[in-house]
Design a protein around this nucleic acid. Structure first.
Lengths: 225, 225
DNA sequence: GTCGGGGTTAAGAGAATGCTAAGCGCCGGT
DNA sequence: ACCGGCGCTTAGCATTCTCTTAACCCCGAC
């Protein structure tokens, strides 16, 4: 889910609301950044404000449609009704008139996803003896339910989504902690340690959580590389 | 499909347009007539103009909501923004700003129908020893009927529809309380507490209502994760 | 040996939650 | 119109839990 919206207040409100509902979110404050984000992240849905500072929203939409068919929900202020038509003609999947609540927006998003066939995974993630259900926020290891704190679960979930890949601490700070910049990487170490304890392993004898020195960490099933 | 709209031109335009698209339609020119039509015909959707000659549209909505949960799409002129908020707070499912085309209105109607469509379940919800009948608005726990206030029932029902999933308080405020923005999350806590009492459990010893710290709450059958 | 990374543990600050009680508005009865 | 009850929200306080920071240790590379 990518939100392209210039007003920081609105953007933040949307991100928070959508994140709370279990969407993985990212955002951009203008059209150019939005397009590059869209290409980089390949979100399942894009929420696009028409009133962007740099490029007209409809232009953004055209450029998007030139390369992908990611569903787009357009958000627009009232006095841009002509643009709504243009947006729909250029492949927008739905639109919402501001001001609108997050609930309404999310309903539209759900509807759009349903329409195009929601490919979002609803199945739990499985990595070896680990089963992670993001919707229930439960993690089961070899049949035993793990009791994880919020960050611990988010961390494990993020790594499980990328099982087998090395993930840098900086990336974790950005994606799991939602720190735009900086943040102490040490914090990640601490949480990793706790996670290892709860997974019944240690850094010396890792089973799932592997440190890759100077690079980051990797979650793999035991026995695999 | 019932259209409650005082302006004859608009009314006929809507009726004709909607009829042409295969909806069974009826109409009323004022609030009183609209309410009696709604009661008599039990339409699947109601299109409600806020600017009625006899009764304020929001009042009509309130009266409607007192007796039914038929989806309502509100139609409003531009300068009635406060009323939009009031309408949504009183249970409107969506709104459209005039002037708008029939196509647009119909899209909204479709979206609303789609949204409530899955909710038109006739079967009661069952979660462990809990049986919830949304139509009768009754909840039974282990054979005993629970005496729930309106909000308590809505809350329980919403959670039961998503049994096993974690739901955030903000989502609850949006979906159960119909607060577009903000709202005090403490309110949810209080209702949760009351619900727990009536379910014969406490936060320390939960059976159905589980707190997921920093995320939200989850309704599950006892014994399940 | 020394330096840079990591790993682990400990502890305090701050946030989130649970619950009681008070306040308030709405509605039905009189 | 007045009264009383009920349901909902707000306020406050106690309590629990999480996250971060800080400190110290270990290890491998140079």
């Amino acid at each position: 889910m990518l939100v392209i919206e210039d007003d920081p207040d609105v953007r933040y409100a949307l991100l928070r609301g959508l994140h709370d509902r279990g969407h993985a979110t990212s955002s951009a404050a203008n059209g150019i950044a939005g397009l590059s984000e869209a290409k980089r992240r390949e979100p399942d849905v894009i929420v696009l404000d028409l009133g962007l500072p740099d490029v007209d929203g409809v232009e953004v939409l055209k450029m998007l449609r030139a390369v992908s068919r990611i569903p787009v929900v357009v958000v627009t202020a009232r006095d841009e009704e002509r643009q709504i038509v243009a947006a729909l003609d250029n492949g927008a999947d739905d639109y919402v008139v501001k001001p609108c609540g997050v609930a309404q927006l999310e309903a539209r998003i759900r509807a759009v996803l349903r329409r195009v066939g929601d490919k979002r995974r609803v199945e739990p993630l499985v990595v070896g003896g680990l089963v992670i259900d993001p919707r229930a926020r439960t993690a089961v290891l070899d049949g035993d339910q793990l009791d994880l704190a919020a960050r611990e679960f988010d961390l494990l979930n993020y790594l499980a989504e990328r099982a087998g890949q090395v993930v840098s601490k900086r990336e974790l700070l950005a994606e799991v902690w939602h720190f735009a910049y900086g943040g102490a990487e040490k914090t990640v170490d601490v949480h990793m340690s706790w996670l290892r304890r709860k997974l019944g392993e240690s850094a010396q004898q890792p089973r799932y959580l592997h440190t890759v020195r100077r690079v980051g960490v990797k979650l793999t099933a035991p026995g695999e590389a």
